[in-house]
């Protein structure tokens, strides 16, 4: 076991994946609780698809993917939030429309310029090999920023998640904070999607929150447990993917799924 572990740590790309992935998982878990409770989890899914479109365009134009995707996804986050507010009834359809269109445009552009290469598959389902050193540093800085901002604004985020009208009535600028959460989510998703894949990154937002919602009774506990679950699931998933030689993104999702099922079981047993 220790041999495998040492072998694991001897690869620098695995070390990077471990650091960036754990940080991004933590960000996803914290933001995920708020998004899931506000019924905004589809936005996370929509954003990752938009991110895929943006990265394909960056690839076709030979630009740095992160620098193109982050602004594009932040703008889309605003857009999706507005759509969700304005048209409660068709909000989910609008999000589906935007995400599928982005994927379609992304696939078209890439197949016209470079052909369907492994790059595309990497973006769709993730790869831990694609990150450059600059990407790693940017990811670490940004995800630490997301974590710190979340902790600092924890009380306001709680109030807005629990009761937006109350927060608004007591003088909190809820639109500003919703946009703030959307920006943090956009950054987190772009950082995570290269490793996890555009199709799979939203699971990091949804699974840990849903698992801890099964057993916790306070908001604080949900936040802490989600963070712990997310980090542990990621590390286990990465380690498993190394030993089983399976794709990292998919393995991390499966590891999250196992945890979720476990918590469902715990909740069932507790109830009886």
């Amino acid at each position: 076991m220790t041999d495998i572990f040492n072998a694991f740590l001897s690869y620098s790309f695995l070390r990077n994946a471990l650091i960036v992935g754990t940080l991004v998982s933590l960000c996803c878990a914290l933001l995920g609780v708020s998004l899931v409770l506000k019924r905004y989890s589809m936005i996370g899914d929509g954003l990752s698809h938009v991110g895929f479109g943006a990265m394909s365009i960056a690839l076709a134009l030979n630009l740095a993917p992160l620098y193109v995707a982050i602004p594009v996804v932040i703008i889309s986050a605003f857009l999706l939030l507005k759509i969700n507010e304005k048209s409660r009834l068709f909000g989910d359809s609008a999000i589906a429309l935007i995400s599928t269109s982005s994927v379609a445009i992304g696939v078209m552009i890439v197949s016209m310029t470079k052909g369907m290469t492994t790059d595309i598959s990497n973006y769709m389902f993730g790869s831990i090999l694609v990150m450059t050193k600059a990407d790693v540093i940017l990811s670490i800085v940004l995800s630490l920023l997301v974590l710190v901002l979340f902790v600092l604004f924890y009380n306001r985020i709680f109030a807005i998640t629990f009761d937006e009208s109350f927060a608004k009535a007591t003088g909190t600028n809820t639109n500003l904070f919703n946009s703030f959460i959307a920006i943090l989510t956009a950054i987190t998703i772009v950082l995570g999607m290269r490793m996890m894949g555009a199709m799979l990154i939203s699971s990091l937002i949804i699974f840990p929150a849903l698992s801890s919602l099964k057993v916790c009774k306070s908001f604080g506990a949900v936040i802490v447990l989600s963070a712990v679950i997310s980090a542990i699931s990621f590390i286990c998933g990465l380690f498993m993917s190394f030993t089983l030689d399976s794709p990292t993104g998919a393995t991390v999702v499966v590891s999250n799924l196992v945890v979720y099922l476990l918590f469902c079981l715990i909740a069932k047993i507790r109830k009886n």
């Binding site: 109030a159 009208s165 919602l213 506990a221």
Partner: peptide, 23 residues
């Protein structure tokens, strides 16, 4: 305000909710 569907299954303790009144 009127209660929302979101609140019905919201994981928060009574104390957390009351304290948020000081927002």
């Amino acid at each position: 305000p009127q209660q929302t569907t979101i609140q019905k299954d919201f994981p928060a303790t009574v104390f957390e909710v009351v304290l948020s009144g000081f927002l």
